[in-house]
């Protein structure tokens, strides 16, 4: 990787900071501690991979910092602003999500009754762009991700890889500070999977967006700046040593 690790750069801005996040599902007999004391700091433009076995709490962490699944305790800062203090929201989460966060998930989460272009356009419109401006922005993004020619297709007529590109375009629509992706390549072959991962690095390095990607795909780990591993709800940063050797 040619880009220096932003974490080492003192001038870099902190995009997202999770402090001692704990998540307990259920209570009593059915109590599950899905995440215990997880902390992570992500700088602007940093691309983070989140690894770990199934059921270890990766999605729980991602949805917590994505402000759609409040933690039981801990603090979440985004854009230098304390957003979650334990399960308590300190701002309107939906509009905060709209402005600051972009999401990409395993199965492309596109709205089935909107065409590819419209799926991106709606995200811009929700953030206050006029429908004309939104359409222009949507086409720009689809062009940037190389699928402008499919903007008039419904999601059901697109391949898995194309759908994920549209999802990435939508995640980028409002120039978010952080993109959160949960196994975005699980439904893709390794070639297309790698293409999507490279797309994230491209976005991060060109636009300064931070990206957190949950992945099981160890073949693409070289594109990430930082690796974290989740095990039984515990989050640890992994050294990138063995991979750095490849450079």
């Amino acid at each position: 990787m040619s880009t220096p690790m932003p974490a080492d750069d003192p001038s870099a801005k902190i995009a997202i900071k999770a402090e001692s996040l704990t998540k307990i599902y259920g209570a009593g007999n059915t109590e599950v501690v899905a995440m215990r004391d997880a902390s992570m700091t992500v700088m602007a433009g940093e691309v983070v991979a989140l690894l770990g076995p199934s059921g270890s709490g990766k999605s729980t962490f991602l949805t917590a910092v994505g402000l759609i699944n409040p933690p039981t305790s801990g603090k979440i800062y985004i854009a230098n602003q304390l957003i979650m203090d334990g399960p308590k929201a300190l701002t309107n989460l939906r509009s905060f999500r709209r402005k600051h966060l972009g999401f990409v998930f395993q199965k492309s989460n596109l709205i089935p009754f909107l065409k590819a272009g419209e799926n991106v356009q709606i995200a811009c419109e929700l953030n206050g762009l006029s429908s004309r401006q939104a359409r222009i922005r949507a086409l720009e993004l689809l062009d940037y991700l190389g699928i402008k020619d499919r903007s008039q297709s419904y999601p059901s007529m697109l391949s898995g890889g194309q759908q994920q590109r549209v999802a990435v375009a939508r995640a980028l629509a409002n120039r978010p500070s952080v993109i959160l992706a949960d196994e975005p390549t699980a439904a893709l072959d390794s070639f297309r999977g790698r293409q999507v991962m490279e797309l994230f690095t491209k976005v991060a390095h060109e636009q300064g967006t931070s990206v957190i990607v949950v992945t099981h795909d160890h073949r693409s780990l070289d594109v990430f700046d930082t690796l974290y591993e989740m095990e039984d709800g515990k989050l640890t940063q992994k050294t990138k040593e063995p991979l750095a050797v490849a450079h």
Partner: peptide, 15 residues
């Protein structure tokens, strides 16, 4: 599902 998705990407209740 679409409604949940719209909420996820920040659609207001009015929408």
């Amino acid at each position: 599902h679409s409604i949940a998705l719209l909420k996820l990407i920040g659609a207001s209740n009015t929408v």
